[in-house]
């Protein structure tokens, strides 16, 4: 009798635990999907071509000792000057091919393919 409350609490805990388990499974599933990180290192984007599902947020991280600027060739997006270890993110909502380059080192080019 004590313990409708305790029982309820226990049930609640169980539900919460289940939810957490389910959630972490989902998280694991997401981690198995293609990466959305692009490393800017030694004046190169890697990977140079990145394929992602629609609504992915892509993040560039500058690992060089000099700044870079991430800019799409058609003007859709453009970062500020990224110093060493700075990040820039952009969310790609629509399928298509997005060409970009470093606007101060234009030999550096890359491509995001959104499916």
């Amino acid at each position: 009798m004590l313990n409708t409350r305790t029982v309820l609490f226990a049930l609640g805990s169980l539900a919460l635990t289940l939810a957490l388990v389910l959630h972490s499974r989902t998280a694991t599933g997401q981690a198995a999907q293609p990466t959305t990180e692009i490393k800017v290192d030694n004046f190169t984007f890697s990977p140079e071509t990145l394929t992602v599902p629609a609504n992915s947020t892509v993040t560039w991280t500058n690992k060089d000792d000099v700044p870079h600027v991430i800019a799409s060739t058609d003007g859709l997006f453009r970062s500020k000057g990224l110093d060493t270890d700075d990040h820039y993110s952009f969310k790609f909502t629509k399928p298509g091919t997005y060409n970009y380059f470093c606007s101060i080192h234009p030999k550096m080019t890359g491509k995001i393919v959104v499916q």
Partner: peptide
Amino acid sequence: NVMNLKAGGL
């Protein structure tokens, strides 16, 4: 010569 640089260019 450092502005309006074109992708892939100099």
